[in-house]
């Protein structure tokens, strides 16, 4: 076996169609960060426990550290870079700013993507729902309370806006 086995991946990444040759063994995190330069997706534990690498594939949250890039072939990927639009921050991002829901910011992209997945399936979550859904994401600055409040606030804003 060679170490350079590759295959072609065609995927929609943040609304842009991309076709790239990727190493079969490449993780989605490597593909996003090293090949596409989308470094908003972070890596930390690389054991799908900490949640900093959370991205959405066809709307479902996955740990990009433990997910083959090959598996996004034909699918739609959303990362933190896709949240804001030219008009401004996504309501979740704005709410994280308004609620001081970050300190160092390293875990923030993962929390934002998980919160995005949560609010799509449940636009009106209880505080308990938010805590349960985000319990696979770790913040070492220990800012969990403001994060939960930020998600609940954003949910209110987003319900009002639609």
């Amino acid at each position: 076996m060679t170490t350079s086995e590759h295959l072609n991946v065609t995927a929609e990444i943040n609304g842009v169609n991309v076709t790239e040759s990727v190493e079969t063994r490449a993780t989605l995190a490597q593909f996003l960060r090293e090949q596409l330069g989308l470094t908003g997706t972070k890596l930390s534990c690389e054991m799908q426990v900490c949640g900093v690498c959370s991205v959405l594939v066809d709307g479902e949250p996955v740990s990009a550290c433990t997910y083959l890039a090959a598996d996004v072939d034909g699918r739609r990927v959303e990362t933190v870079e896709g949240l804001a639009n030219p008009g401004g921050l996504h309501p979740l991002q704005q709410s994280f700013v308004d609620n001081f829901a970050l300190q160092c910011g390293f875990c923030t992209p993962g929390f934002l993507m998980m919160a995005t997945a949560l609010l799509r399936r449940n636009p009106d979550p209880s505080e308990e729902d938010v805590k349960e859904y985000l319990d696979g994401n770790i913040c070492r600055c220990t800012g969990y309370e403001p994060i939960v409040h930020a998600v609940l606030d954003a949910a209110r804003t987003m319900r009002g806006a639609t």
Binding site: P61, S63, M114, Y133, G136
Partner: peptide, 9 residues
């Protein structure tokens, strides 16, 4: 099971 990502994947 696990966390929300593990349940999806």
């Amino acid at each position: 099971v696990g966390n929300a990502r593990v349940r999806a994947q």
